[in-house]
Amino acid sequence: MPDYSLSYFYVFVFFGTGAVFVAALLTASGLVQPKKKTAEKLRTYESGEEPVGSAWGRYPTHFYIFALLFVVFDVEVIFLFPWAVLFRTFGWYGLVEMGIFIFILVAGLFYAWRKGALTWY
């Protein structure tokens, strides 16, 4: 088997191990856990919201600001990892570039903080 196809095999092994692991844990937990089925517990989980009701209801939008801020830093990490791996290749130029990138994100975080986006009401 050439190396190229072998790399797919690793992915498959990884995938298989993950699936077995999750299935085993869920089964084990299902066997030993106490079961008390109340109406509240059986309801669809909707991030703390009423799952059924008028579509025109008012709901708190705080989650969205946090979600947006999370996305910003999530994306930052996506760029940081490859940069960190190739740090030697990029050298000073890469360091300056990444500094600019992080500066922009920090300015955004500063703005969000000062405008009260991080305060939980």
């Binding site: 300015a107 500063f110 703005y111």
Partner: peptide
């Protein structure tokens, strides 16, 4: 222009 936009935001918030 990018820098100016950031400066404006930071001044506004700061």
């Amino acid at each position: 222009v990018t820098l100016v936009a950031i400066v404006v935001l930071v001044i506004d918030a700061g």
